[in-house]
Design a protein around this nucleic acid. Structure first.
Length: 464
RNA sequence: GCCCCCAUCGUCUAGCCUGGUCUAGGACAUCGGUCUUUCAAGCCGGUAACGCGGGUUCAAAUCCCGCUGGGGGCGCCA
């Protein structure tokens, strides 16, 4: 059975980069009818926050990639200690009494001198225990020349053991480091395929050394990092990013559909022929980790917008209504619910005109409640001719003929204006903006009485 | 500085492993047209790429080497 895991550290917000790692792990497990485990990597007590952990789970749920199982590393400190004792006893690890300060100094100097700033193995061969605080370091074996592994995505990667330093397994405060905890957990939980970001490649040889001591080495798949839409550097390091990269904000504040985000993320580094749109079900069926690209991809907002408008069009009107409700301001939610039937009818006309749920909300609100006239529009259309047109139109719809087109032609000929301008005048009066769904649909949605009321209001707003 | 990874239109990619079918395909964006009561959507069409230099071969986007460029790592962070 394939067992994958997603192991975020709750030290920052959930952004699209980690979301993709989670997605790929989920898809690969589900495709193989395996298990997908969520592990919270909270060994860093200082930086870990419950709010970040909550956001991770909320976002996974929103995206529809929920784990089968979940645990925290902070719950397993006893187990890590046990493994450290074992490694110490067998001579795979040793106590290091160097102070962080001297080590830091050493590092700086090495970096300056252009050397690999590896730990100088000062305490590697100490025979006696000292009565001082100590960290536990892994003893990188001298008899192994290189560590080689076949990464599912990156292919063969080789590193000489001389490049690997005696890394810390346990800090002097007794807490485990990432490299230790991660390996112990992956081993204990029988993870078969470790799918994670390419920023972990350099940790892998260290971990493989540990895995071999424990007795089993899993498969690795390192996903190329997602680069920002524009500019340089890695996604997660950019706080100044122009648009949001946080999944929660993308969905709740910007109005993107989880379906679109998942679709876009899946297509970053992976393709299935010429197919562009994938539901999560299709992804589970078609996704293949062995076909993922090894080159980094750039996040593309333009494509996300397109994907979002695509997915909006595929939703049923009833579904859109439900989702849209979350974006409607509280003070008009009641009206929104009351007018459900009318809104449902105009949604088909709105959903082809918007790219996000926010844009959809903005197009629905003028139907629920008249706001104000577009300034430029009023300047252009609310003149004496406009007033006459509105007067005529008021009489026209009062007389009851539901059809709208004949009026446009009549008025156009009568006043010598373009039919488009006649329509714009009415649109402005009824909707307040120069852009709207087709007028006949808007009138049907707000109702004849309200339409007449708004026309009167417009007429009154035009001075003689 | 050292180590590792990567390199097809502006962007995401197909093709590369198993050289010839590639005058390099699709999508987004962009430009033009069409439709039209606004704005969209839809439909039709256009512009646009194998980073450079060496090999190997009858033949290279595809294989090899170098360069250049981009990315990542070098913590008692994960």
């Amino acid at each position: 059975m394939i067992v994958t895991r997603f192991a975020p550290s709750p030290t920052g917000r959930f952004h699209i980069g980690v979301a993709r790692t989670a997605l790929f792990s989920f898809l690969w497990a589900k495709k193989n009818k395996g298990k997908f485990i969520l592990r919270i990597d909270d060994t860093d007590k200082e930086r870990s926050k419950k709010s970040f952990e909550d956001e991770i789970e909320k976002c996974l749920k929103l995206l529809g990639i929920e784990p089968d199982e979940k645990f925290r590393q902070s719950e397993r400190f006893g187990r890590y200690k046990e493994v450290v004792e074992f490694l110490l006893e067998k001579g795979y690890a040793y106590r290091c009494y160097c102070s962080p300060d001297e080590l830091e100094k050493y590092r700086e100097n090495a970096l300056k001198a252009g050397l690999n700033p590896k730990y100088p193995k000062t305490c590697r061969n100490l025979q006696t225990k000292k009565d001082l605080p100590y960290a536990v370091r892994f003893k990188v074996p001298d008899d192994i020349f290189e560590v080689k592994f076949d990464d599912i995505v990156m292919r063969t990667i080789k590193v000489e053991t001389s490049e690997i330093e005696d890394f810390v397994l346990m800090r002097s405060d007794g807490t485990p480091t990432y490299n230790l905890a991660s390996v112990v957990d992956d081993f204990d939980y029988k993870i078969t395929d470790i799918i994670r970001g390419a920023d972990h490649i350099s940790n892998t040889p260290k971990q493989i050394l540990l895995f071999s001591i424990l007795g089993r080495v899993p498969n690795f798949a390192h996903l190329p990092l997602i680069l920002p839409d524009e500019g340089e550097g890695k996604l997660s390091k950019r706080e100044d990013f122009s648009s949001s990269i946080y999944v929660y904000d993308l969905i709740m504040k910007d109005g993107f559909l989880p379906e679109a985000i998942v679709n876009h993320l899946a297509r970053l580094g992976w393709a299935y022929g010429d197919k562009e749109t994938f539901s999560i079900q299709e992804l589970i069926e078609l996704f293949d980790i062995t076909e993922v690209n090894s080159s980094p991809a750039r996040y593309n907002f333009k494509k996300l917008y397109w994907l979002n408008s695509h997915w909006i069009k595929t939703l049923t009107d009833e579904d859109i209504f439900t989702r849209l409700r979350d974006f409607i301001p509280d003070e008009i939610k009641k009206t929104f619910d009351e007018k459900k039937y009318s809104i449902l009818k105009i949604i088909p006309q709105i959903k082809i005109r918007v790219r996000t749920m926010i844009e959809m909300r903005d197009m629905v609100i003028p139907i629920l409640r008249f706001d104000s006239y577009d300034q430029e529009g009023a300047k252009k259309f609310f003149n004496q001719t406009g007033k006459m047109i509105l007067l005529d139109f008021k009489r026209y719809i009062e007389s009851g003929d539901g059809r709208f087109e004949p009026f446009l032609k009549e008025a156009s000929e009568k006043y010598g204006v373009k039919t488009a301008d006649v329509a714009q005048t009415i649109r402005l009066a009824i909707y307040g903006k120069l852009v709207s769904p087709p007028l006949s649909d808007v009138i049907a949605a707000i109702g004849k009485d309200e339409a007449i009321k708004r026309i009167e209001m417009a007429i009154n707003s035009i001075s003689d």
